[in-house]
């Protein structure tokens, strides 16, 4: 059997100045060709750090402590910046939350998209420019030849994100990492961008690693979902199964806390809370990191951090199906 497109195995990342502080505590994820894997979780769970690791863009002050990342079976040299430059943009495309941060305000759109092609391929400038116009048309921008001549500030937020997607796809990558790609956009624009990503995926066969906090988007576009909490993957399942019968108490809490239409009951609090707060990276906590917030925790949870076994990392996985609108 062919190797998975991307395989992250037991990835550990810590703070260089603090040997005890680990931000990614052994994350394993696999993405097959053409599929969409959503990684969800709240701020600080390590979902963005996981995607930055894949691209070899670990922030200053952090260090890889262990684990491997394989791309088509070969180990990704994520600490070798020169080697990663040849892979980023060509084999792995990236789309981030804030399109304006990914675009240089002093160059035209055409120059910036062409630069990606010229960086990775031996083509003439004129050929690159012709491909740019095709790409801009492909991501649904009207009058692409004109847009290629414009500077980023002339475009709306949604148009800018389309340009960033065109840049990410310029060299026909196999994997697109989309880290909160629509979080800064209005919801109507978000729907257009997500539809575009799905269309491009279908036509080009790219795999998408979608990093998001938005469970609505996950439900609509992901094939599989990995839920992260405090630097670990706590549950992974096919999308339908995860939403119908979440097993980890944190996944259940997250779904219960998410607003959805028609669940309101008169005289009751509008939403279901998860009590407490996420532990900080430097907080030393034995056993399961979710334990202080968990209604199902037992003695073993305080001493043994549960290993990930097939579906969940939990000593007491829950098996009762969720009935929509009813909180268990």
């Amino acid at each position: 059997m062919a190797a998975p497109l991307l395989e992250i195995d037991d990835l550990r990342v810590g703070i260089r100045s603090n040997a005890a502080a680990e931000i990614l505590r052994g994350v394993s994820l696999t993405i097959e060709r053409g599929e969409t894997l959503a990684v969800v979780g709240e701020s600080g769970c390590g979902k963005s750090l996981t995607s930055l690791s894949v691209m070899g863009l670990l922030p200053d002050g952090l260090e890889k402590r262990g684990g491997t990342i394989r791309f088509e079976g070969a180990i990704l040299p994520i600490t070798d910046n020169e080697a990663m430059r040849r892979i980023r943009g060509r084999r792995i495309g990236m789309v981030f939350q804030e399109p304006m941060a990914a675009l240089n305000p002093v160059f035209t759109i055409g120059d910036q998209v062409a630069e990606v092609i010229l960086e990775h391929e031996a083509v003439s400038r004129a050929d690159a420019m012709a491909r740019v116009v095709d790409l801009l048309a492909r991501v649904g921008l009207p009058d692409p030849a004109q847009i290629a001549r414009e500077h980023p500030h002339r475009l709306s937020g949604g148009q800018r994100q389309r340009v960033v997607i065109a840049m990410a796809l310029a060299c026909r990558p196999d994997l697109l990492i989309a880290d909160e790609p629509t979080t800064a956009l209005d919801v109507t624009v978000q729907a257009q961008i997500m539809r575009l990503l799905q269309e491009l995926q279908r036509d080009l066969g790219i795999a998408i690693l979608l990093i998001t906090h938005n469970l609505g988007l996950v439900a609509q576009v992901a094939d599989r979902v990995a839920v992260m909490y405090a630097g670990r993957k706590v549950e992974e399942a096919a999308t339908a199964g995860l939403f119908a019968a979440p097993q980890h108490p944190y996944t259940r809490g997250l779904l219960a806390a998410t607003p959805r239409p028609g669940r309101r009951r008169a005289g009751e609090p509008p939403l279901t809370e998860i009590p407490g707060v996420v532990p900080s990276v430097t907080e030393l906590l034995s056993g399961c990191r979710f334990r202080p917030r968990c209604a199902f925790a037992g003695d073993v949870c305080a001493s043994v951090d549960p290993a990930f076994g097939g579906r969940v990392a939990c000593h007491f996985p829950q098996t009762v199906e969720l009935v929509p609108g009813v909180v268990t």
């Binding site: 729907a191 609505g216 609509q220 576009v221 939403f243 959805r260 239409p261």
Partner: peptide, 21 residues
């Protein structure tokens, strides 16, 4: 219609129907 509903059984673009689901 543009709001993604956190329910895989409700297809994108049919948020109004989600109420009765």
């Amino acid at each position: 219609d543009a709001i993604p509903i956190p329910d895989p059984n409700v297809p994108m673009g049919s948020g109004r129907a989600a109420f009765s689901a």
